[in-house]
Design a protein around this nucleic acid. Structure first.
Lengths: 298, 298
DNA sequence: CGCCTTATACTACTTTTGAGCATAATTGGT
DNA sequence: ACCAATTATGCTCAAAAGTAGTATAAGGCG
């Protein structure tokens, strides 16, 4: 007779406002947490519907796009776990929403996700925290591994050491290495911690979400879930850059999305502080035309 | 007080023998099923460890590579579910293994996964079943949708209609459309069904696994989990082709993996029925050199 | 030896990507 | 009215990557 399971739902709800990627949190204690819910099989026919209802009940929000991320079930991942009690397993979800309108709960807050992962934002150049606090410690961790080639390759690839390229999608891998070397406050033993901590393993779930969304925008047109129906190309680019934490080449980005058939001009123009910009809308037919219709550009 | 949860584990264990992609099944009834286990929190510290132990106990197999796929929890996905009873939630896993050695259970069987998905194998040209049975029915389903542009784009993209390219990774999407139109035996209402059915929703889980592994080999070097430590380039290519269900251009494939630093020659040669081939081994350093070290080639 | 088979090398061409510069259309100040 | 600043948009060019072949090499076998 297997022990008891408590199945939770942990949604990472993302919105981008003025090139700042925001994640929806509940701040009712020391550390922000995700607006978690629990799955009651008597009420919901599917896990996704349960997640949607839980989000609606918790924060009064109707997310358009929602996808399952990963299921977390390590022992003691939730401090409520006791010797004879249930295991707290939780399913992470990624939700995307176009505007940060909320139901009005007091303790709900949108937070810039780079507060939790300052080393992930390369838009204003290489993050200072890397050379100040990360590179040396990862190097020490590699050296400490001695002949462990796996550890060397892992660390080098994750943090772009020795000239290795930075992989914007390896968010979880980096977080896990930092956890392993005690550089985040969630680790059982830690010092000189980086980034703002979250409750439980929620920063790990957020890392999973960021990695997923960074990968996904490159081959699925999910970026448009975060934008109004019509937008300028600069708005689109800034949103992509916000998620990816990197700058893109303007003309090449335009060429990619326009010639690639991802967007189509509306003919209307919008005032800027310079030449007015044409507005565009997503062109859904591209899904059937290209194998990977996303904004996959370096 | 939420209802009870029974948490299962459904591993899709894959092995490629002579260019045939095999999946490990239990055949003890009408329909093959995955070698499922159940998660007992009292015994296992993590979900992955539970999956590994379950696989070992069920089929006496030690998989090297194992990754979580997706968590399935729809109401009535498991026929054991009753009105007052628990919801049977299960976590799918993908396991890769180099050789089909087994512990010796009688009802365990390796089955060519294209028996379950005959429309996914394009190695000997376009699968006949597509034009015989699929294209018309998907077309009818689209027409039936009337002005529903979503359905048209979805069907066109998934099955490569109207000249759209075939996307080898959209295995689950195709299965789900076939389920929706009643072209698979697992659908509640069906006729003229395609492919061999599996128990419960196991064919859906297998579709998820095939899609995942087809995507994954393009950006992670997981293909080597399915090969011995040293292999010829033709062996490597045939294994990739088996998973992807498509043929690759031989010289270009060689150039890609060799010049790309994914493999390195051992200097040894192996007899073939023609000129002997050099053997190669995986070169792990590539992980730190290239952003997406996989066999991503058309 | 000549022929078959498979491995490996090389070439020509096309497409995509990366980086930079040029021009266009506004606003706001003088 | 004109100029400078600002942002949008268009264009070019070289490098890199991908596509599709053909040519040659090295074995086995009659």
């Amino acid at each position: 007779m297997p022990g008891e399971i408590a199945l939770g739902l942990d949604p990472v709800i993302v919105c981008v406002v003025d090139a700042v990627p925001l994640v929806l949190t509940v701040v009712d204690g020391e550390r922000p947490r995700l607006p978690a819910g629990s799955f009651d099989p008597a009420r919901d026919r599917t896990l996704e519907l349960a997640a949607r209802r839980s989000i609606d009940e918790q924060v009064g929000l109707n997310v358009g796009y929602l996808e399952q991320l990963y299921t977390f079930g390590d022992r003691f991942r939730d401090p409520r776990e006791t010797a004879g009690g249930p295991r707290y397993v939780t399913i992470g979800y990624l939700g995307l929403i176009g505007s940060p309108a909320l139901g009005g709960q007091a303790d709900v807050e949108w937070i810039d996700w780079y507060q939790f992962f300052p080393w992930e934002d390369w838009r204003r150049g290489r993050p200072l925290v890397l050379d100040k606090n990360v590179v040396d410690r990862v190097g020490a961790w590699i050296a400490e591994g001695g002949t462990d080639a796996g550890r060397r390759i892992r660390g080098t690839a994750a943090f772009g050491l020795d000239g290795a390229p930075w992989n914007d999608e390896a968010v979880l891998e980096r977080y896990e290495i930092l956890y392993e070397i005690g550089a985040v406050a969630e680790a059982p033993v830690h010092r000189d911690v980086l980034g703002r901590p979250m409750a439980l393993d929620h920063r790990r779930i957020l890392a999973t979400a960021i990695g997923r969304v960074r990968a996904k925008i490159k081959y699925r047109p999910v970026i448009f879930e975060l934008l109004p129906p019509s937008f300028t190309l600069w708005q689109l680019q800034r949103t992509v850059e916000a998620l990816g934490g990197m700058r893109l080449h303007k003309s090449n980005f335009r060429r990619f999305v326009e010639d690639g058939g991802l967007v189509v001009g509306t003919g209307e123009r919008r005032a800027t502080s310079g030449r007015p910009a044409e507005t565009f809308r997503f062109r859904p037919e591209v899904i059937a035309e290209r194998p990977d219709p996303g904004v996959g550009i370096r």
